Simulated scan of single mutants.
Amino acid sequence: MPNLRSPVHRVDPRAVRWWTLRGLCSAGLVLVVLLLVAWLWEPARGWLVAPIVLVAAWTAARALVEPRWRYAVHRWETTDEAVYGLTGWVVREWRVAPLSRVQTVDAVRGPLEQLLGLATLRVTTASSSGAINIVGLDKDVAEQVAERLTLVVEQVPGDAT
């Protein structure tokens, strides 16, 4: 039985840039649209002030607070018995997946992750809670861990159901 402690590895420091860019791309896009509407449609300016202020505050939180907070929280670890993940910034999730429950192991790289040399390690299990996603890993580390876990999981008895 795995012991209940925090995983030992931090994600790659470049993950802070990735989370910052994601925050700017999502919340920042909404802010740009609101500002554009206010600039082009003069009658809307008065009632758009409050939404613009709220979205600007949310964008600042997503770009300045969330990435650093996530970096402080996110941890991961793999052993010959289990995969551990600790994630979140508002709601924290601590998950352990015994290797006997692992069905697939993938290294996934979205466009921003590719740009920054990062990857997400996705460990799919037989759990109804879904996969454990370890985000913000160096792409080479993610590939090495995926290969190692695949080899270890092949040796674990059971059918992962």
Rank of each mutant, 00 (worst) to 15 (best):
T87I: 00
E113N: 13
T161F: 09
R10W: 07
N133G: 10
E93N: 13
G130I: 05
E154G: 08
G158I: 10
V16C: 05
D106A: 13
V108M: 11
E81L: 12
L137S: 03
A82L: 02
G136Y: 05
P157F: 06
R92C: 04
L54W: 05
E147D: 14
E154W: 02
G88L: 10
V73K: 13
G158R: 12
A63F: 01
L112P: 03
H9S: 14
V123H: 06
A107N: 06
E42R: 15
V153R: 02
L86W: 03
S100Q: 10
R62A: 13
R62T: 03
Y71V: 03
H9T: 06
G158C: 12
R5T: 13
R75M: 11
A146F: 01
H9I: 00
V53N: 02
W18R: 13
H9F: 12
G46M: 06
V108I: 15
W18V: 06
P51F: 06
L29C: 15
I52T: 10
E154I: 01
S128L: 13
T124C: 06
H9R: 15
T125I: 09
V53E: 00
L112V: 12
A27V: 08
V53L: 12
Y71M: 10
V156D: 05
A82E: 05
V102N: 02
R148D: 04
A61F: 12
V108Q: 12
L99M: 10
V33T: 13
L115K: 07
P2G: 11
K139H: 14
S129P: 00
R14D: 15
T125F: 06
A15E: 01
R109I: 07
T87S: 13
D140W: 07
P13T: 05
W47C: 03
V11Y: 03
S6V: 12
T78R: 08
M1P: 10
G136W: 02
A119W: 02
E113L: 11
V55K: 00
T104R: 07
S6Y: 14
P157Y: 06
A126N: 07
V102W: 01
G110Q: 11
V145E: 12
W58G: 01
V11G: 09
L4D: 15
G85Q: 06
L99K: 04
V65H: 10
T150S: 10
S6A: 15
Q103K: 09
S6T: 14
R70P: 01
A82C: 10
S128V: 14
G117H: 08
V32T: 11
V33K: 11
L118Q: 03
V135M: 09
L54I: 09
L24V: 11
W47T: 08
G85Y: 04
D138V: 11
D106L: 07
R22C: 13
A82K: 00
L149P: 04
M1D: 13
L48D: 02
W94P: 00
R75L: 11
V53Q: 01
S129N: 07
V108F: 08
V55A: 02
W69I: 05
E81K: 11
L86E: 02
W47R: 10
S127F: 01
G28V: 04
M1T: 14
R62F: 03
R148H: 06
L31P: 04
L29P: 02
L115I: 00
A27K: 05
V123A: 07
Q155W: 00
P13M: 09
